[in-house]
Design a protein around this nucleic acid. Structure first.
Lengths: 117, 117
DNA sequence: TCTATAGTTCGATAATAATAGAAAGATCGA
DNA sequence: TCGATCTTTCTATTATTATCGAACTATAGA
């Protein structure tokens, strides 16, 4: 059983890195901000575009990226597509960030460091 | 007083987007993971490189990006540079994510959505 | 079926970012 | 001052990403 100690978390790390990258541009972070503010109903694609002043093709690419990382969910209603933030995914991301926090040094409690005061 | 209602948060949004982007690659998220695990002492640059198997010049660029976003702090000790995660910045980032959450729809409490279960 | 509206995909360009070898800079002990 | 070690900067290459107009697809109502 070689490499038994080092668990292979590359898939997990890559997944969360992709989630962070998906929110790592001004446009897409604004989209998330808007969808979180409108949670849980969400917004129609066109309304996001007019509110943020983003051309439809550009917006479509951004939303595709956010959907790929499962940060945004979409439901159709006639010709409209309603987008909403996937808050569970965000929760998992925050959880990941402090998951191994201080495991090498028990000086500080993980939660105290990154999450809620 | 034009645009009085819409507060200009572009600087803030850009700052947090840059922070997210800084952690949005596998290499740099691993670096953060390692530094969080070693918090609050942190690690020496060379140890990060050997643990993650990253060439020194590449690592230096990654660390520079993380330092630029104030996600990593550095202190010198002789010829060694000790790096540590700036957990306050991470806290602010998490705070930002749920700050305006559901402000348009009071159905769900912000904290319940993104942060601690 | 025809048309209007909502949104995506195509195609192309410009800008950014990741990577890393080699050379240079910083610190310290001898 | 010299040499050893740790880290950054230089230089270059390759890969990825952001952007958006134009063409296309999807849905619904007349």
């Amino acid at each position: 059983m070689p490499n038994a100690k080092k668990k292979d978390d590359s898939g997990e790390v890559i997944r969360y890195a992709d989630m962070l990258a998906a929110m790592g541009t001004e446009s897409r972070l604004r989209i998330m901000q808007l969808l979180l503010a409108s949670h849980p109903d969400g917004l129609v694609v066109g309304d996001i575009g007019s509110e943020l002043d983003i051309p439809s093709s550009t917006l479509s690419h951004h939303l595709e990226k956010l959907k790929n990382e499962d940060l945004v969910r979409v439901r159709r209603e006639g010709t409209f597509l309603w987008c909403s933030a996937n808050t569970e995914a965000l929760q998992q991301l925050v959880g990941f960030l402090y998951a191994e926090c201080c495991t090498r040094n028990k000086a500080v409690e993980p939660k105290t460091i990154i999450c809620c005061k």
